[in-house]
């Protein structure tokens, strides 16, 4: 297994108390595989990724427990300079907002070349040649002429390509993409997702795609982890989850999106709001919004029940997953 996260806990100290952003998350990605981490704002999907990358803001953040195994070694036990060698070279991240993630006062060529200067000790001239090569790779037209341009001179889609180029520079084995296309228009989103999928196949990389968009997930993912209030509530291969969700939250999400290919009547709406992480409800965190909630849901935290072991592994953190699956 390329990456395995085990029972990860992350907390944030705030003025009003300790916010438990991640409460025992576990997932795994293999080489060449795409895992989609799906969740709404505040579900802990980005914080988990930041912990894996080692870019969590500490303090106020704190990793309160768990293991992150990358190629069998626990990243959380490594020294910072060792982690720095892995970050960028072996695992890389693509952020949502390319304009604020790129340095506005450096040319894109300089920023791309820096990867080679710092990690590979290349000369400035060689690094620049490599930068042009990378820009060609992600299909930026006239790369040679544009290598000296600044980020603001590129369109949103082109900037996101530069972000992808930067992540791919050192041919990492794992890429984490945090909402890589959320800020883009649909036609550009399609271009960027296509490119990402193609490069992933070519380099046989593991990809963690963090998103809230059920459409994008259906298009590219192999398996899905659905997060709610800092926990994984359902994990399954992509086909199974869309066909028959085993958790009421997943079911609610799927029912609440309007479809392009059919005009429905009233949309199903999950009532209420996601919980405040300072005051996560006792028992199942979803119980105040759940149409199936009963007494046990308000008192006992549901474990991640195995739904099927083979041929595919599925799990659901619902006491009544059987009813949900068949109902």
């Amino acid at each position: 297994m390329l990456l395995e996260v085990r029972d990860l806990h992350v907390e944030f100290k705030t003025r009003d108390g300790v916010a438990k952003a991640v409460n025992g998350v576990a997932y795994a990605v293999d080489a060449g595989e795409t895992l989609a981490v799906l969740g709404e704002s505040g579900s802990g999907k980005s914080v988990t990724a930041q912990a894996v990358m080692g870019i969590l803001d500490v303090p106020p953040g704190r990793i309160a427990g768990g293991e992150i195994l990358f190629k069998g070694r626990d990243l959380l036990k490594m020294k910072e300079d060792e982690r720095r060698r892995i970050r960028g070279a072996e695992m890389a991240m693509i952020f949502q907002d390319a304009l604020s993630s790129l340095n506005p006062v450096l040319t894109v060529g300089k920023q791309l070349g820096e990867m080679y200067e710092v990690h590979r000790g290349m000369s400035r001239k060689d690094a620049r040649a490599k930068a042009v090569e990378l820009m060609d790779r992600v299909r930026i037209p006239a790369a040679k002429q544009r290598v000296g341009d600044y980020p603001h001179q590129f369109s949103g889609g082109m900037r996101q390509r530069i972000m992808i180029a930067m992540a791919l520079a050192l041919e990492p084995s794992l890429i984490i993409a945090d909402e890589p296309t959320t800020a883009l228009d649909v036609t550009v989103q399609a271009q960027v997702m296509d490119l990402l999928a193609e490069l992933q196949r070519e380099f046989n990389m593991g990809l963690i795609l963090i998103t809230h968009d059920l459409g994008v997930v259906a298009d590219v993912a192999d398996k899905i982890a659905v997060m709610y209030a800092g926990r994984i509530v359902e994990a399954a291969p992509v086909h199974e989850i869309y066909k028959a969700p085993a958790h009421p939250y997943t079911r609610g999400l799927l029912d609440s999106i309007p479809r392009l290919d059919q005009k429905g009547q009233e949309l199903y709406a999950i009532k209420g709001l996601p919980p405040n992480l300072l005051r996560i409800p006792p028992g199942c965190a979803f119980n105040p919004r759940c149409p199936m909630a009963r007494e046990v849901c308000r008192s006992d935290v549901p474990p991640l029940y195995p739904v099927t072991e083979s041929p595919v592994a599925r799990a659901s953190a619902c006491h009544f997953w059987k009813e949900c699956l068949h109902g």
Binding site: V186, A190, G215, V216, A218, Y242, R259, D261
Partner: peptide
């Protein structure tokens, strides 16, 4: 055609 459809099928 570019809109992702929430259906892996």
């Amino acid at each position: 055609s570019a809109v992702p459809v929430p259906d892996p099928q």
